[in-house]
């Protein structure tokens, strides 16, 4: 799969939170032997205090930890809007626990000791997901920047064009001449780098999914 090579080029980072030092060391070594960047933390707090990673990353969380449990920590991360993929590892997993973890969106729920291939498979899935998430976030950011470059008049035209109004109708609604509408339309298409009307519609749709877009 090409995904794997892409991930390796971009130095995918695996972050491990486990309170047991020997588990941490063994996991770090295992993941390094496959070529991942690894960052280990002994508890949730030191993870939160650390610099966030740039590229795609995946979090390996021990369920049983002193203080905040892995499950509670995951829930808190979700509440804060963090969307890093999470793989749970536990010494004694029961079904209820596994079901809850998967419901909360965990990638995998592994019971120690596990086969390395199971962990690596799960990590790969998580990292591919995270990469896709990062890519779509990046695209959205670019779109937001382009949209911010439009004038207020061009945005008015854009909303109506996307809604399916003809130039004539748009001109009537905005009380402008049809020529002005045409000029603004051409300009906004250029600024948004939209090749066609369907392309623009797709872009505006994506923007509408952003919370920042609705606030204008």
């Amino acid at each position: 799969m090409t995904g794997n090579s892409v991930l390796k080029e971009r130095n995918a980072c695996v972050q491990v939170i486990d309170d047991d030092a020997s588990i941490r060391q063994a996991l770090e070594d295992l993941l390094m032997s496959v070529g991942y960047d690894v960052r280990c933390f002994s508890d949730a707090d030191s993870y939160l205090r650390a610099e966030p990673v740039e590229g795609p990353s995946c979090l390996v969380l021990d369920i049983r930890m002193p203080g905040l449990s892995g499950m509670d920590f995951h829930r808190r991360l979700l509440e804060q809007g963090a969307s890093t993929p999470v793989i749970f590892i536990t010494g004694h997993g029961d079904i209820a626990m596994g079901v809850e973890a998967m419901k909360n969106g965990a990638i995998e729920f592994l019971t120690k000791p596990f086969r390395d291939i199971d962990l690596l498979d799960a990590l790969h899935r998580g990292l591919v997901l995270d990469e896709a998430r990062l890519a779509s976030e990046g695209e959205r950011r670019v779109l937001m920047e382009r949209w911010a470059g439009l004038t207020a008049g061009e945005r008015d035209v854009a909303h109506r064009v996307v809604a399916g109004l003809l130039n004539k109708q748009t001109a009537a609604e905005l009380e402008l001449s049809e020529i002005t509408v045409k000029v603004r339309r051409a300009s906004l298409m250029r600024k948004m780098q939209a090749a066609s009307l369907p392309d623009l519609v797709r872009q505006i749709d994506r923007l509408r999914a952003c919370p920042e877009f609705g606030m204008e």
Binding site: D20, A26, L30, G91, H92
Partner: peptide
């Protein structure tokens, strides 16, 4: 339960370390 958990930790670490060892050698 607590004994099982306590004993499981080093066993899991042994498993992972031996897997890592095999991977370092098969590079």
């Amino acid at each position: 339960t607590s004994i099982v958990h306590e004993l499981n930790q080093p066993l899991a670490a042994v498993t992972m370390s031996s897997q890592a060892c095999a991977r370092w050698l098969s590079l």
